[in-house]
Design a binder for these strands. Structure first.
Lengths: 174, 174
DNA sequence: ACGTACTTTCATTAATTTTTGAACCTACGC
DNA sequence: GCGTAGGTTCAAAAATTAATGAAAGTACGT
């Protein structure tokens, strides 16, 4: 561990016959990669989102793969992730079976739901665990100091759990 | 990427001649490891913190190493990290050069500062980058749609940047 | 119904992050 | 002042996570 929370650079390169990313596109990609890093989202996902975000029209699979110079697998996985998080959606031109991807209107609500998808399960599984810890401590030693610490922790945990649903009604739009 | 944000289990084991962790201690460690994972903090650090958190009295280096069954290097690094984040502090018994570690009173403010230390630098370096992206887009194509998206992004960025200092006055206690 | 354009899956490989431990400091008690 | 308890460093190993690409679906247009 140097400081935690670092990511290294390493630049991908567009496949021949696809337009390489313009400087401002690279810069936006870097921005999203940086932010994604904080949330623990891999760079390939952030790059895909950045490309869609800065594009005038919806983009298809091959173009994404070509311009970003990444593998089919990564594009597929990345699109799946973004789709599952509700961060992108697809339209289809009629007469083609190809899907065209674009960002959903509200990045804000996407981010909240992404955050929730990380934190919520942790909080839920923690609530009973913390209760067990409290029980364990009580029967073991019982320094009032430690007991108070743990009780406080548990209160936070439940408070956070209550708070989340208020932030954004789970499956719907906001 | 399966879902992102998973960590696998793998349990450490106390060195012989040190008390192995009791069930409730393990459970608290798991809780902290889980939470730390979200913030990108390694498990060893979380385990050390958990142990200090549930202990009645301050603990020394050897005891931490022994009970957690981890290497000297990890203990040293972990304590350094926690110390730098202001999450623990040490006292010394007189007549001994040994340091005894305990959590600082406010976990809350520690967490905020930890969060800040991740997010703040990213936001700062992003502000000018986003401006350059905007400039780039304007000279390149100029779909009003995309322009609006990016402008919004930039507004958020500055708003977040303004907001942070309010959350906790940078270097002091709260 | 069929063929294939398009996408997904997943075992393997590559990249990154974390842990280890032996060598190296460094300052305190004597 | 010196020896060593107490701690740090850091290169190398282990563990974890991300990316690749060939093989395997799937469903759409004909």
């Amino acid at each position: 561990m140097k400081t935690p929370f670092e990511k290294t650079a390493g630049r991908r390169v567009s496949r021949p016959s696809f337009e390489p990313l313009a400087p401002h596109e690279l810069e936006l990609a870097d921005f999203f990669v940086l932010m994604a890093g904080i949330l623990g989202v891999p760079r390939s996902v952030a790059e895909i989102y950045a490309l869609l975000y800065i594009s005038i029209k919806p983009l298809d699979f091959d173009l994404i793969q070509g311009r970003l110079g990444m593998s089919k697998g990564s594009v597929s996985q990345g699109l799946k992730f973004l789709r599952d998080q509700g961060m992108i959606l697809s339209v289809k031109e009629k007469g083609s079976r190809r899907e065209l991807w674009q960002p959903t209107p509200s990045l804000a609500s996407s981010l909240v739901s992404l955050l929730r998808s990380q934190v919520q399960p942790a909080l839920e599984q923690s609530a009973p665990a913390l209760q067990r810890v409290l029980d364990g401590v009580q029967s073991a030693n019982a320094s009032p100091e430690v007991l108070e610490r743990l009780a406080r922790l548990k209160r936070w945990n439940s408070r956070a759990l209550e708070l989340f649903p208020l932030l954004l009604p789970p499956p719907t739009e906001a």
